[in-house]
Design a protein around this nucleic acid. Structure first.
Length: 852
DNA sequence: CACTACCAAAGCGGG
DNA sequence: TTTGGTAGTG
C-alpha cells in the first residue's frame, strides 16, 4: 500500500474487527432474517453493478444495511474498504446505527460511510495540494460565500442591485453541480450575469484559493478534478474501495455521478439505491437521468425492484400510485401492500387558508382525544410508543386523555384545555367526562408525534403556527433556520475562527465592528488597503495601518484592543487552554455578550440562550478546532425530540419520514403545483411537482388528508385559486370527499360523507364543487374576503391598558403586565414574560375572526 | 459614524 | 405581511 493510503482509515484490522472476522462462520446471520424475496436478491447480489429500485416504504434501508453486513461478514471487504454515501447526516447516522445493531457491538465504525460531502472532505484533506490548497482549508457556508461574492461584484464595478450576489451564488453552484470548472465555463457560457459570469466565477475560485477555503460545491468538484488529472491517485482509491453503495441515487447531481463513476470504473462493484418517483431535487442540480440511465452506464447490471410496501394502507398506496402514473418519464413500479382496506384518502375544500388551519387543528384535537371516528378505527394500535406514553402519563399522574372539547367552546377556553395542568377546572365547568382512566381510548388515539402537516412552501406554515398557538396545541417546525445558521451563533463562531486562525479574513470582516467599535466602512477600507500593500491578511493590514498612523483617534484605540484580543485568544488556543472557558472569555472580552444584554428587542434573550447552548455544545469536543471542523459539515439541531408535538414541515423535508396521520394542505394550482413550475419549467417541472405530491401521500401510514382553500393571502394580497390539478388525478375510488365544514362554530364533526366514486374514475374535484357545502362557499366567492380587523389595525401603546389581552405575531397571546412608554411587559401564555414594543402588539380577538 | 425611513422582494434547502 | 438592505440625515 502506498503512502497515500497510510493512516487509520486505511489501516489494517483493528482488534475488534479481527475478532469479528474470526467469529465468522456457522453463526447466525440475523441480517438475512425477515427479508422478502426482492430484498434478499438485492442483498445477495454482491458482485457487479446493482440497481435497487426501492419504492416508498419498501424497506430500502433494511436491504441496504443488510447488504453491507453481508459484504463484511462474507469476507469480501473489511469495514474500511466499503464506501457508502448518503445525502444527509441523518441517513448516514441511521445506517451506522442499524449496521451496528445487525452485527453486534463489535463493529468499529465504518470510516467511509457518510455523506458525499463528509467523505470528500476527508479525501480532499489528503490531496489538497493537488488543487492548490493546504490540507487545513476551511469550509465556507452559504453566508460567507455570499459576502465574498458581493465583494467581487463590487470590485468588478457592477451594480449589486441589478446583479445580486445570491443569484451569482446560484449560478456558480449550478456550474459546480455539473462539475464545470471556470475553464469549462469560459467560452461555453457567456450569456449569464451580464456576460461576466464566467469571469466572476474564475475570480471567485482564485479568491477561495488565496483564502485557503472551499465552498460545499468545491468538495466534490475538486475531488473530480483530482481524480481526472491524477490517474495514480484515482487508482489507489479504485482499489481500496472494493464495494460502493449509494443511497438516494435519484438525487445525485452530475458532479457526484462523475465522482462515483470514476471510483467504480475498475471493479464495477457499485450498488445504487433509489426511486425515480421520489426525485424532488431537480432545482438543486439532481439529475433523474442518472438513475434512468444506470443500466446503460453499467451494462449487465442486476436490477432489483422492491415493490412491497410496508408503510401505508391499500387505499393510500393506490391513491399515490394512481397520481404518479400521470408522469411519463419513469421506470415504472407496481407497489402493493398486504395491508388491505384502511381509510381512503380524505379530501376537503375550505373557504380560505385560516379556515383550513382551523379545521386541521380541530381534527388533530380529535385524533389526540381518541374522539375522532377514524381514531376509533385505528388498526395499528398498541404500538410500543403508546404504551410508553401511557406509562409516562400514569407516572406523572397526568390524566392520560384530553377531554373531548365541545365544538362551541370559547377560543379562550380552548387554550386552557390545551394546557394539561389547568384543564381540570374546565372539565367541571363544561361537565365533561373524565377520560383519565380510559386506557382503551388512549390506545385508539393518536399521539401528537404521530401527526404531521406537510406544506409545499414554508410561508404556509404561519397559518398553522398562529392557529396552534391560539388553541394551545404543541407543535414543532422542522427544518426552519438551523441552530448554526442563526446570526448570533455565526457571529460567535467567527470569533472562534479568529482565535484558531487569526488570518481568517472573512471572520475578521464579520466581527471587526461587532459589537460596534467605531470601525466603520472607512476604517475597514484603510485596513483592506494596508493588507493589500503588505500582501498579507487583514490582521497584519490592521497592524500596519496602526503603525503608519493611517487610523487614528478613537478608532485606533478600539482597533488596538480588538487586535490584542485576537492575539491573546490565539495564544490561548496554542497553549491548549481549556476551550470552553476560552470561548466564554472571548465572548465576554469582545463585548459580544454585552451587546445582546444591552439589546432591548424581544429576540435578545433568546439569542443569549443560544449562545449559552453553543458554549455547552463545546464541552463534547476536544478543542475549538475540532468543534469548528465538525460544525462546517454537521449542522444538526435535533434537540427537543422528547416532547410529544405535532410536526410541521415542507414536503421536501419529509422525504424519508413516515407518520400515521398526514395532513396535506394547500393543494391549489399556483401553490401546488407552484406557479413557477407552471410558468417556467414545462413538463419537467410539473412532473417534479407531481413526484412531490407522491412523496407527500406516501408518507402516510393510516390517515391521509388533502385539503385546499379557495382564497389565500400571499404576501399580504388576497388571491383566489382553483384546486390543484393533482386532485383531478387521484383515482376517485380511493378518495373520500368530505363536505366542507359547517359554517358557524360547531358542525366540524358533522362532515358527512358524500357517496361518489363509482362511474367517473377521475371526477374528484367536480364532486367537491357539486357538494352542497362548496356551493355555499362558491356563492361567496364573488365577494373577495375582507381583510380581518386584527390584521390591518395597528395600535399605539395608548390603546392598551394593564390587564388587557393582546396578540403578538411571534409569541402568541398574552396579558399586559406593565406599560412603560412604547414598551410593554407581557406575560405570554406560551412564551413566558417578555418586554416588547407596543407596535408589535394587537388587541386579542375571540371568535369574531371567523369568516362569514 | 449611527440611526431612521423608505423601498424592493419574497421557492422547495442538504452539506 | 415581513424582512433586509440602502440612502439620507443628525
Amino acid at each position: 500500500m502506498s503512502s497515500i493510503l497510510d493512516d487509520d482509515d486505511f489501516g489494517g484490522l483493528s482488534l475488534s474487527q479481527r475478532a469479528m472476522m474470526a467469529a465468522r462462520g456457522p453463526v447466525g446471520t440475523p441480517w438475512l432474517d425477515g427479508l422478502n424475496d426482492a430484498q434478499r436478491r438485492a442483498v445477495e447480489a454482491l458482485d457487479g453493478p446493482v440497481l435497487m429500485l426501492a419504492g416508498a416504504g419498501t424497506g430500502k434501508t433494511k436491504a441496504l444495511t443488510a447488504r453491507i453486513a453481508h459484504l463484511i461478514h462474507s469476507g469480501r471487504a473489511r469495514p474500511n474498504e466499503v464506501l457508502a454515501v448518503t445525502f444527509t447526516n441523518k441517513a448516514a447516522r441511521e445506517m451506522k446505527d442499524r449496521i451496528g445493531r445487525l452485527m453486534g457491538q463489535t463493529l468499529e465504525g465504518m470510516p467511509w460511510l457518510g455523506t458525499f460531502h463528509s467523505v470528500c472532505v476527508k479525501l480532499l484533506r489528503r490531496h489538497a495540494e493537488l488543487v492548490g490548497l493546504r490540507s487545513n482549508f476551511t469550509i465556507l457556508d452559504t453566508d460567507d460565500q455570499i459576502r465574498l461574492l458581493k465583494q467581487l461584484i463590487l470590485a468588478a464595478n457592477m451594480d449589486e442591485k441589478r446583479w445580486p450576489a445570491r443569484q451569482l451564488a446560484g449560478l456558480i453552484d449550478s456550474w459546480k453541480n455539473r462539475a464545470w470548472t471556470p475553464e469549462h465555463v469560459r467560452g461555453a457560457d457567456t450569456a449569464h450575469f451580464d456576460n461576466r459570469g464566467s469571469e466572476l466565477y474564475a475570480a471567485y475560485q482564485d479568491r477561495l484559493r488565496t483564502l485557503n477555503a472551499v465552498d460545499f460545491g468545491d468538495l466534490l468538484l475538486h475531488m473530480v478534478t483530482i481524480f481526472q488529472r491524477h490517474p495514480d491517485v484515482l487508482q489507489q482509491y479504485q482499489r481500496w474501495f472494493r464495494y460502493i453503495l449509494v443511497d438516494e441515487y435519484q438525487d445525485t447531481n452530475t458532479a457526484q455521478y462523475l465522482w462515483l463513476r470514476l471510483l467504480a470504473q475498475g471493479h464495477r462493484n457499485i450498488c445504487c439505491v433509489g426511486d425515480d418517483d421520489q426525485s424532488i431535487y431537480g432545482w438543486r442540480g439532481a439529475e433523474v437521468g442518472n438513475i434512468l440511465r444506470f443500466e446503460k452506464d453499467f451494462p449487465g447490471a442486476v436490477v432489483v425492484r422492491l415493490e412491497q410496501n410496508y408503510r401505508s394502507t391499500e387505499h393510500i398506496l393506490a391513491a399515490a400510485s394512481g397520481l404518479i402514473a400521470a408522469n411519463r418519464d419513469r421506470l415504472g413500479k407496481t407497489l402493493w401492500t398486504a395491508d388491505k382496506g384502511g381509510e381512503k384518502v380524505r379530501l376537503i375544500g375550505h373557504w380560505d387558508g385560516d379556515e383550513e388551519a382551523r379545521w386541521i387543528g380541530e381534527e388533530i384535537e380529535k385524533l389526540y382525544n381518541g374522539s375522532h371516528p377514524l381514531a376509533k378505527n385505528r388498526r395499528n394500535t398498541r404500538s410500543k410508543t403508546h404504551e410508553q406514553e401511557f406509562e409516562r402519563r400514569v407516572k406523572n399522574q397526568l390524566p392520560p386523555m384530553l377531554p373531548e372539547i365541545p365544538p362551541d367552546t370559547l377560543l379562550s377556553d380552548r387554550r386552557i384545555f390545551g394546557d394539561i395542568h389547568t384543564r381540570g377546572l374546565l372539565l367541571k365547568q363544561y361537565g365533561l367526562e373524565d377520560r383519565s382512566s380510559n386506557v382503551e381510548a388512549l390506545f385508539q388515539s393518536f399521539m401528537l408525534g404521530e401527526i404531521t402537516i406537510l406544506v409545499r412552501a414554508s410561508h404556509q406554515m404561519r397559518a398553522f403556527e398562529d392557529r396552534f398557538l391560539t388553541i394551545g396545541l404543541p407543535y414543532r417546525v422542522i427544518g426552519g433556520p438551523r441552530f448554526y445558521e442563526r446570526q448570533e451563533i455565526r457571529d460567535a463562531m467567527a470569533y472562534f475562527r479568529l482565535a484558531v486562525s487569526p488570518d481568517d479574513d472573512l471572520a475578521f470582516e464579520r466581527v471587526v465592528n461587532l459589537p460596534k467599535r467605531g470601525l466603520g466602512d472607512k476604517a475597514q477600507a484603510v485596513i483592506q488597503t494596508c493588507a493589500r500593500q503588505a500582501e498579507a491578511g487583514l490582521v497584519m493590514g490592521a497592524k500596519a495601518a496602526l503603525q503608519q498612523g493611517a487610523i487614528g483617534g478613537k478608532a485606533a484605540g478600539a482597533l488596538r484592543a480588538f487586535l490584542d484580543g485576537i492575539g491573546r485568544w490565539h495564544a490561548a488556543v496554542l497553549e491548549n487552554a481549556d476551550h470552553v472557558r476560552l470561548a466564554e472569555t472571548i465572548l465576554e472580552e469582545s463585548g459580544y455578550t454585552d451587546m445582546w444584554l444591552a439589546d432591548k428587542t424581544p429576540e435578545a434573550p433568546g439569542r443569549l440562550e443560544n449562545l449559552k447552548e453553543l458554549v455547552k455544545a463545546l464541552e463534547s469536543f476536544e478543542n475549538l478546532q475540532g468543534f469548528l471542523e465538525h460544525v462546517a459539515l454537521i449542522m444538526d439541531n435535533d434537540k427537543d425530540q422528547s416532547e410529544d408535538k405535532v410536526s410541521i414541515m415542507t414536503l421536501h423535508a419529509a422525504k424519508g419520514l413516515e407518520f400515521p396521520a398526514v395532513f396535506l394542505p394547500g393543494w391549489e394550482d399556483g401553490l401546488f403545483p407552484s406557479q413557477r413550475a407552471l410558468d417556467e419549467g414545462g413538463l419537467r417541472a410539473l412532473e417534479e411537482e407531481r413526484r412531490l405530491a407522491y412523496v407527500g401521500i406516501t408518507r402516510a401510514e393510516e390517515i391521509c388528508t388533502i385539503s385546499f382553500a379557495g382564497n389565500r393571502r400571499v404576501y399580504g394580497q388576497w388571491q383566489s385559486q382553483l384546486p390543484s390539478r393533482f386532485i383531478d388525478e387521484l383515482p376517485a375510488t380511493r378518495v373520500e370527499v368530505l363536505t366542507p365544514p359547517g359554517l358557524y362554530g360547531g358542525g366540524f364533526g358533522a362532515a358527512t360523507q358524500t357517496g361518489f366514486g363509482s362511474l367517473e374514475a377521475r371526477a374528484t374535484k367536480a364532486d367537491v364543487y357539486n357538494s352542497p357545502g362548496w356551493k355555499r362557499m362558491e356563492s361567496r366567492a364573488s365577494t373577495p374576503p375582507r381583510p380581518k380587523a386584527r390584521t390591518v389595525t395597528t395600535v399605539d401603546s395608548l390603546a392598551f391598558g394593564v390587564g388587557d389581552r393582546v396578540f403578538h405575531v411571534k409569541f402568541g397571546y398574552g396579558e399586559v403586565i406593565d406599560l412603560e412608554g412604547d414598551t410593554a411587559l407581557i406575560e405570554f401564555d406560551k412564551a413566558g414574560s417578555k418586554h416588547v414594543k407596543a407596535g408589535f402588539l394587537k388587541p386579542a380577538v375571540g371568535l369574531d375572526d371567523v369568516p362569514f
